[in-house]
Simulated scan of single mutants.
Amino acid sequence: MPVTVLITGATGFIGRNLAADLSRDGCAIIALSRHAKDARAVLGAHVRVIEDLREVMEDEPVDACVHLAGARVIGPPWTPGRRQTLINSRTHITHALIELMRRLTRPPRVFVSASAVGWYGCPDEQGNAPCDESSPGTPGQFQSDLCAVIEKTAMQAEGLGTRVARMRFGVVLGNDGGAWPMQAAMARLGLATVLGSGRQYFPWVHIADAVGLIRFAIENERISGPVNVVAPASSTQAEFAESLAQSFGQRVRLRFPEAPARLCLGEMADLLFKGRLVEPRVALTSGYEFAWPGLHPTLADLATRQNHGTRYV
Rank of each mutant, 00 (worst) to 15 (best):
V5I: 14
I7W: 01
G9Q: 07
T11L: 01
R24I: 03
A28G: 13
A28M: 04
S33D: 13
R34G: 15
H35E: 13
K37S: 14
A41L: 12
G44N: 06
L53C: 06
E55W: 01
M57L: 12
D59L: 00
G75A: 11
S89D: 13
T91K: 02
H95G: 05
L97K: 04
R106W: 08
V112P: 00
V112E: 05
A114P: 05
S115F: 06
G118A: 09
Y120G: 07
Q126R: 15
D132S: 08
S134A: 15
A148R: 14
A154W: 03
M155H: 09
G159D: 15
G161N: 13
R163I: 13
V164A: 06
V172A: 07
G178T: 12
V194F: 07
V194W: 05
L195E: 02
G198W: 04
D209L: 10
G212A: 12
L213M: 15
A217Y: 02
A217C: 15
V227S: 01
N228S: 02
A233M: 12
T236H: 09
E239G: 14
E242Y: 07
G249Q: 10
R255L: 01
C264E: 02
M268T: 07
M268S: 13
P280N: 09
A283H: 09
T285Y: 05
Y288K: 00
F290T: 01
D301S: 14
D301F: 00
V313W: 00
